[in-house]
Computed example of a mutant assay.
Amino acid sequence: MTYEPEPTPPVPELLGTDTFGRPVYGHPLPPAQRPQAPVYAPQVPAPARRAAGLSTGRVAALAGAAVAASLALAVSLLAIAVSVVALTVCVLVLRSVWRDVQRGR
């Protein structure tokens, strides 16, 4: 087994300084050996497809409308029930008063 030192990477060439005084180096490899950036084809966006069923927003709107309608129905049925009870009490009281008037009290 012989010891082989690792090859030293090429040293970039000092080209000069930029306007702020920082050193500017050239690429360490000759142009033929420089790695090339991969070339990708431009991505074409897929055509927008609409969902066949209901969207989430429509489902939420329908659910909200159903809840509102059921609450409105419950309130109106409660109002009708209170009115029926009040009318029944009123009729019973008036009937009692009418009987008392007819008996001459």
Rank of each mutant, 00 (worst) to 15 (best):
A60D: 01
R34T: 07
D18Q: 03
D100C: 07
A51H: 11
P42W: 03
Q102V: 07
S96G: 14
R103S: 09
L71E: 12
E4A: 09
V24F: 02
L14D: 07
L71Q: 11
A68R: 12
L94R: 15
S55N: 08
L94C: 15
Q36I: 05
P12Q: 00
A72K: 10
G16S: 09
V11A: 12
V75G: 06
L29P: 03
V91Q: 07
V93A: 08
G53P: 00
G53C: 06
V101C: 06
P35N: 06
T8L: 13
L54K: 13
P35C: 01
V67Y: 08
P10V: 00
P31G: 08
V89E: 05
S83L: 10
R34I: 06
A61D: 10
L87M: 09
R105F: 09
L62A: 03
L62K: 05
V75C: 07
R105S: 09
L87S: 06
A68L: 12
A65S: 14
R105C: 09
T56M: 11
Y3P: 11
D100Y: 07
V97Q: 05
V91N: 13
L78Y: 05
P47N: 05
T2I: 09
S55A: 04
G16D: 06
Y3L: 13
V82A: 06
R103C: 07
P35T: 04
A52T: 02
F20G: 06
P35E: 03
P30F: 00
L29T: 02
C90V: 13
V44E: 10
T19V: 11
S76T: 05
P45S: 15
T17W: 12
E4G: 12
V93I: 15
R50C: 09
H27N: 07
G16V: 02
S55I: 00
R105H: 14
Y3C: 07
G21R: 02
A46Q: 13
V89Q: 11
A60C: 02
P5I: 01
V11S: 04
A48Q: 15
W98S: 13
V97Y: 09
H27Y: 08
P10R: 00
P5S: 02
V85G: 01
V84K: 04
L87V: 08
A81V: 04
L87W: 11
F20N: 08
V59K: 07
R22K: 12
A86D: 04
V67P: 02
V67H: 06
L77Y: 08
A61Y: 00
S70W: 03
R49A: 10
R103D: 15
M1F: 05
V84D: 10
V89S: 11
R58I: 02
V97L: 12
A48D: 10
V89F: 09
T17L: 01
I80L: 06
Y25A: 05
A72R: 11
Q102D: 13
G16M: 05
T19G: 05
V39I: 13
L73H: 02
L54G: 01
A32T: 08
Y3F: 08
P30I: 00
P35I: 00
V89C: 11
G21D: 08
V91Y: 04
A81F: 09
V44G: 08
D18S: 04
V101R: 15
L71S: 09
P45V: 14
P38E: 14
T2W: 14
R95T: 12
M1S: 11
T2S: 15
P9T: 01
S70N: 06
A48G: 12
A41F: 03
A66R: 06
I80K: 07
T2L: 15
V39K: 15
L71T: 10
V84M: 04
Y40G: 09
